[in-house]
């Protein structure tokens, strides 16, 4: 009996693939080479930019945070909530991880950055894949 259990464990360990967290937008991350690594992972807060999977949200590029489609004007509120979740000492060190699709419009990304600047969230990490 234990043998069978372990054989099953082997089988699932080998065949399992990591499930991507469910998200409302479709994103293909661009590749880059000169990557930097963040030491304190808890400082990272994610913003996603991609085309919604569900067309009822529209067909253009949308911003998604915390698994919800948000508007440009909601970013300020999002920044404040995320900052509140950090410890006192790290409040001004928050890093916004911008996970955007390769074909996303720079106009939208610039707008997002302007919004982040307005709310003093100025550290940006553009999510890229290692080439």
């Amino acid at each position: 009996m234990p043998d069978i259990v372990f054989l099953l464990l082997f089988f699932f360990m080998v065949s399992a693939t990591m499930k991507q967290p469910e998200d409302h937008v479709k994103i293909k991350i661009p590749p880059a080479h000169a990557l930097t690594k963040v030491q304190k992972q808890f400082l990272i807060k994610e913003l996603h930019i991609g085309k919604p999977k569900n067309v009822s949200f529209g067909i253009g590029y949308k911003i998604s945070a915390e698994n919800q489609i948000i508007q440009l004007s909601d970013i300020g509120h999002w920044v404040e909530t995320q900052r509140a979740s950090l410890d006192e000492a790290y409040k001004n060190q928050m890093i916004v991880l911008l996970k955007a699709d390769v074909d996303a419009d720079m106009g939208l990304i610039m707008d997002v950055q302007q919004e982040l600047r307005k709310h003093q969230a100025r550290k940006i990490l553009y999510r890229t894949l290692e080439e």
Binding site: L35, R122, K123, I124, Y126, R127, T128
Partner: peptide, 24 residues
Amino acid sequence: LLIFFLVATTLDKDKGLMMQLPPD
């Protein structure tokens, strides 16, 4: 094997290009 994979697997969501935006 289990321990090997536990140790060797990293989720590299913390890598990217860092940029500091100018103050507003």
